[in-house]
Design a protein around this nucleic acid. Structure first.
Lengths: 212, 212, 212, 212
DNA sequence: AATGAATGAGCTTTCATTCAT
DNA sequence: TATGAATGAAAGCTCATTCAT
């Protein structure tokens, strides 16, 4: 009478992930305190009570969600940057390509968005995210920039500033899309943004160079 | 013989602003739903009940807070950009100067931060902020860029992309400071960030030009 | 500079009564717990705080209101019934005349209405009202009826029942007007009600008598 | 194997009614605003929160309570009056019998009592009750009386007055019992009241007839 | 593994009451 | 005498969490 124990098993194994997906949607839409467990449960196709078979508390869901996001992103990106020891400009373009990919998958915005919104309430989460994601990526970028400066390819300037010049626009675009863009509104093409921005950063906005 | 009613009056007149200041601190720290009215009241040196003499509800406080922030910023900045019809590059530097000012006053980050965090829960607030602040500033910047392009001073590129290249790093810095920067940590000098970023955007990061 | 101490004095003396009038309106409209002191104060043309110069608490207002109502009604009516030692039928008509008067002054409904509505919350008030008003009037009526029965003018029947038959319709009319009658609706003429009811009670509704 | 879900279910199904019963007791004792939800919940053997699983708000409970009362009473009584097309006097006795039944079940007083006490605060409830209960019953009685008058069995008189003469005493008795009667005090027998009153109304209080 | 009825701590909000002026 | 800003206890309501089934 039991259709298939294996199917059941597979479903059960997938449950935590399904719940986290639903939680991500809710946290994104309503913030952590604004999100109701009942809503999350419904989003995962479960009853409220069942959620607690998989997570000890709502806060635990948030933590797990961030951790999952962290693991998915951090290392891979950093590796791609660091292992590339060739032309700094090529490496920069490579890095930009990663951003272009991220920007075209709105579901990836969710975790950083939540981290940003809830940093005040959950400092450890902000800390975790900074340590595991931001500092890793930022560090890799800064090293890349320094390499370019040493090689005389990049102008001399505080790498911290350069990092912001480089990725600030991508962060802004993420916030734009999750916060201000309206339902029907046309989205700026990620490829166009990334390549356009890279062009500006590398060559400058001005047609004639040498401004003070 | 009546000397103090005026003092009382003056305090009473100041109350709404004091409450909004306290509310701003709380919303920033805990988000809207996470902030407790009692906390806000204490921050304003009042009892819980007194807050309700000035604002009908917590939501009303949020709305008033945003509106106050909107009024303070929007038009003035836009005016300064539009009235300057001279050299686009000079105008850009002028605009950057405004950002440098904003970035050096962390209390000005509060409203945009809250808008970003609560956009999901209060769409009207996000809409108001976009209409009154963002679109105004963004529009002025886009017009400036087009002027520069028509004059042949700026390279041809979608102004929407250029705007992101220009101000994205400043947005990022705001988020950095309110979300990830740690208490003791040294803050990137706003002047340095603005002038450095402007230099990159205008002249490019590369020492030799003409990249594909 | 003081226009007239006497006028001031006169106003001050009238204050408690004005407040009670306002309280009566509010209690009638919203019930005791539903009525707000601020509302009562406004109705009396005073500030919330000033009310407390005249009454120690809201409950005190209710008590004073009932007491005032009690004093105004009780004895006078009873006296008129008891002093009339002549024809019981004439006495009954006399008593009915009092009810006709009361029914034509809706402001007199207020106190009994409030007593009825708040009896559960303030048993002592219900007790006071019963002792001072109802039992006095009821007692007088019962004595009158017994006199008529002894004299062979009235049929033999439990005087408690007769009292209800006599005044129930008037009570009902009071409730009807304060509870169910709609703003524009035409009011049943008190005179017609009283004389019609009296006619029925004295002579019967049937054209042919002697029903089992 | 599943024996108890049904028991659970049965309890859950009964809950709304249990809560309304408890609410009726509380509203009767303390009035609507005076009644505390926690009290109602305790009266129904539940926690505060559980009540809100069944009713959206305290006001909703009041509304449901009235509606339940309305449905229980209205039509049935009216039907009994209207379907009886025989002797008007018999019909009147029939109607009186219904009142005798109602008067002997104090739990039936609750709804009208609450309606009377809260009419000021909830006009729609008073309207509903009048439309669905009072006007229905009153209309049936008035038709009955007119039939009697046309048949020459009843004296000519405004039916509105006659209705008050007929049922006023019963209303008064309801108010007496819920408001003024003291705990130990002996209650007037409903049968005696109804039959006595009917006797008076039909035949008159006087031994000799023909009073002006 | 899953349900959903039930709990109760905790929040927002109201309002009688006080008090400095 | 009068004001009205301020208080704080108490109430309605929500929702994360538990538990019997």
């Amino acid at each position: 009478m039991q259709a298939s124990p294996k199917l059941r098993q597979r479903r059960a194994d997938a449950r935590p992930d399904e719940i986290l997906n639903a939680a991500a949607r809710c946290f994104l839409a309503c913030g952590f305190s604004g999100a109701k467990v009942e809503h999350i449960a419904a989003g995962a196709g479960l009853s409220k009570g069942a959620v607690y078979l998989y997570f000890k508390s709502k806060e635990e869901m948030l933590r797990a969600l961030i951790e999952r996001g962290v693991k998915r992103v951090a290392r891979t990106a950093a590796d791609r940057l660091d292992t590339d020891n060739g032309d700094p400009i090529q490496a920069l373009k490579e890095a930009a390509g990663i951003f272009a990919q991220v920007l075209s998958k709105p579901e990836l915005f969710v975790v950083p968005r939540i981290v940003i919104a809830e940093a005040g309430n959950f400092p450890e989460i902000a800390r975790l995210y900074r340590d595991e994601v931001i500092d890793v990526g930022k560090g890799a970028l800064e090293r890349l920039i320094k390499r370019g400066q040493v090689a005389g390819v990049f102008v001399q300037m505080d790498p911290q500033v350069v990092v912001r010049s480089l990725i600030g626009p991508f962060i802004m675009q993420m916030i734009w899309r999750t916060t201000f863009e309206r339902p029907g509104e046309e989205t700026l093409d990620p490829e166009a943004l990334v390549s356009g921005h890279l062009d500006i950063v590398l060559n400058g906005l001005c047609t004639r160079k040498e401004h003070q």
